[in-house]
Design a protein around this nucleic acid. Structure first.
Lengths: 143, 143
DNA sequence: TTACATGCAAACGGTTTGCACCCGG
DNA sequence: CCGGGTGCAAACCGTTTGCATGTAA
């Protein structure tokens, strides 16, 4: 369970599992799909959970560091995230019209990337593949 | 030649080919490799070329739009760019230690992406693959 | 001549930080 | 009790913009 992973991670670093961190974690895992920081805050406020924006900003890097959350780039100008638990690494198709994000994972793609890194003697840690274009719905009406 | 492409692009949009735009274009194409806006400005100042930061900020989107420049994401917190003329689209390996950017292009990778898009009925316009890790030099000394 | 561009400096807006108080271990 | 955490508001800083002036076509 994600809470256990997070707790152990914090403990290992001599950090505390506070109620604020617990609620951010819980909220992040309560929906699938990507989110941005403001949306997260708003949803938490609606549920009556009190956390400051600063705490969310301070918690997210920890979640990234322990691998429970990944960053999705370039949806718009702020950072977007999504939790990884239960689906692991994957890539994204981002619709430049409606903003929809389609996740996909391709074993073949991962393998190919690995071999490209090997060719360059590059030690791959993470990667991000983002394909921008029009989703099925927007594709037909696209200019 | 890139200047011709840019001129035609501007003309088509009813915009002007000013000396500021010309010098930004020239500077962008005077070195290979990626750059950020401040570095570009500093280099231009050193050469005695006077352009305001605002003009560079206003010129770069045009260069992106006409495909002469592409954006490289996530090197650090500001936007990085590179011109595409003479090498076309390619992907990046970014060293998270020294910041080195290795460009690579793989036909196989492009084909694979295309077929993934087709499967999702997604009309691909652009894509970005960025692999972060350690380059050969930093890989050995990495913690 | 007349849009469109430029330079400057001010405004923006997402993210980070300093600080006084709080609390998990 | 102590060292890390929180909330708040201010500071940051890259990017955008308003405006008076300049200039390509």
């Amino acid at each position: 369970m994600e809470e256990k992973i997070f707790k152990e991670f914090l403990e290992k670093k001599g950090l505390k599992f506070t109620k604020e961190r617990a609620s951010v974690l819980k909220e992040v895992f309560s929906n699938h799909g990507h989110f941005d920081l403001d949306a997260l805050l708003i949803k938490m406020r609606r549920k009556g959970i009190r956390v400051s924006k600063a705490s969310i900003y301070r918690t997210l890097p920890l979640l990234l560091e322990c691998g429970l959350v990944e960053q999705v780039e370039k949806v718009d100008k702020h950072a977007h995230y999504e939790h990884t638990f239960g689906h692991g690494h994957h890539d994204h198709l981002i619709c430049i019209k409606c903003g929809k994000v389609i996740s996909l994972f391709s074993e073949k793609l991962e393998k190919l990337q690995e071999s490209l890194c090997k060719k360059e003697k590059f030690k791959c840690i993470t990667h991000t593949l983002e394909i921008r274009g029009y989703c099925e719905r927007c594709g037909s009406s696209a200019r």
